[in-house]
Amino acid sequence: MSDLKLHPNFINGDDFYERLLTAHEGLTKAQSDALNARLIILLANHIGDMDVLDKAITLAKDRRKT
């Protein structure tokens, strides 16, 4: 069983956040949604581990815990 990392795991989180916003700059809502979807599929494949993915989905769904 692998665990979903919930401690800060970025070396520089601000950098990541900025990149994410920059990627969406100038996009329509539909284009942004499509980019997010591709990003999720890419990252999910990188993780690969179903346990980790399951936990992330559960956490993301339960807004009281996010």
Binding site: A34, A37, R38, I40, I41, L42
Partner: peptide, 10 residues
Amino acid sequence: RLFRDAVLEL
């Protein structure tokens, strides 16, 4: 549809 199209694009 969004995820389906994302998979097809990729």
